[in-house]
């Protein structure tokens, strides 16, 4: 029943069939999207009417391709911006947290650590509404007392950034902690014996050691932000991110342009994910 033991023919064929069906199930939606992104038809369905790139490049009058759709392009750009900012912020704070929890001793470390990993088991919708509530309350209070309306406390680009950061930082924290735990402290001690101060040690020894984990978690943090829907839904203002824009359009009915966007997303995210895998292999 395992590879070192003899297996009956029926067992082997049955199992192979199951695995093939599983991967068919896994890739069916992605394959269908990709194929129909190139179908020369107004409808997102079979039959196949021939190959076209219209859904990417057409510029009117009957067909507007993805690269001439200002709404989609704008939301794509917003998502990239959000992703980069969230990933940077999460990387900085998550790494600081990792150092704190691995290398320092202080009071209330255990409950604080528990709090830091809690966002992983809080549903994204809840994070969204609770941050929306607090931001609105604080925003109202500030407006009432000072007359200043702070935009980042209203559903907006920056509130989305804060909401996504609140749980993506946890992810970075965990990745960096697991790498930091493998760190050999005698290296640091040796450097200090040789006269390096703490900052030099961090810059020249600890950070280079952590580099694969840092780059890897930056990529993953970006992807998590880029694809986030549940938390973003409640915090988004007029700057719709790509998933929000796609969701609105999908609800209104599908067009082949949506397939074109999805196809590009499939290509883009899988190459980023591949990069991440290559990096973690090296580690």
């Amino acid at each position: 029943m395992i590879r070192s033991m003899p297996r009956s023919l029926g067992y082997r064929i049955g199992y192979a069939l199951f695995v093939i069906l599983f991967y068919l199930f896994l890739f069916a939606p992605l394959i269908v999207i990709s194929v129909l992104a190139f179908n020369d038809s107004q409808f997102v369905s079979l039959p196949w009417n021939g190959f076209t790139l219209d859904w990417f490049f057409a510029n009117g009058p009957d067909r507007i391709g993805l690269f001439h759709d200002p709404e989609l392009l704008r939301s794509l750009w917003i998502s990239i911006e959000t992703g980069l900012i969230v990933a940077t912020l999460s990387l900085v704070v998550g790494t600081m947290g990792a150092f704190l929890f691995v290398q320092e001793r202080f009071c209330c470390k255990e409950p604080l650590y528990f709090l830091a990993i809690a966002p992983l088991v809080i549903p994204g919708v809840i994070l969204g509404i609770s941050i929306l509530l607090t931001a609105t309350m604080v925003g109202d209070w500030i407006e009432k007392t000072t007359g200043i309306d702070l935009e980042f406390l209203r559903p907006s680009f920056w509130l989305v950034v804060l909401g996504q950061f609140s749980f993506i930082a946890t992810f970075v924290l965990l990745v960096v902690i697991s790498r930091l735990k493998k760190f050999d402290h005698t290296l640091e001690e040796a450097a200090m014996d040789l006269g390096a101060n703490r900052w030099t040690v961090i810059r020249r020894i600890t950070i280079p050691f952590l580099m694969p984990a840092l780059i890897g978690s930056f990529v993953v943090a970006f992807l998590m932000s880029f694809g986030n829907f549940n938390t973003t839904l409640f915090l988004v203002g007029s700057d719709a991110t790509l998933p929000i824009e796609l969701y609105t359009q999908i609800r209104d009915g599908s067009t082949p342009v949506l397939n074109a966007v999805s196809f590009l997303l499939i290509v883009f995210t899988s190459s980023l994910a591949l990069l991440y895998l290559l990096l973690s292999k090296k580690e």
Partner: peptide, 15 residues
């Protein structure tokens, strides 16, 4: 499929 995101996969299932 995980990296591609839930929304895209769901769209695929709708089609």
């Amino acid at each position: 499929p995980f990296w591609v995101g839930e929304l895209v996969s769901i769209y695929g299932w709708m089609i």
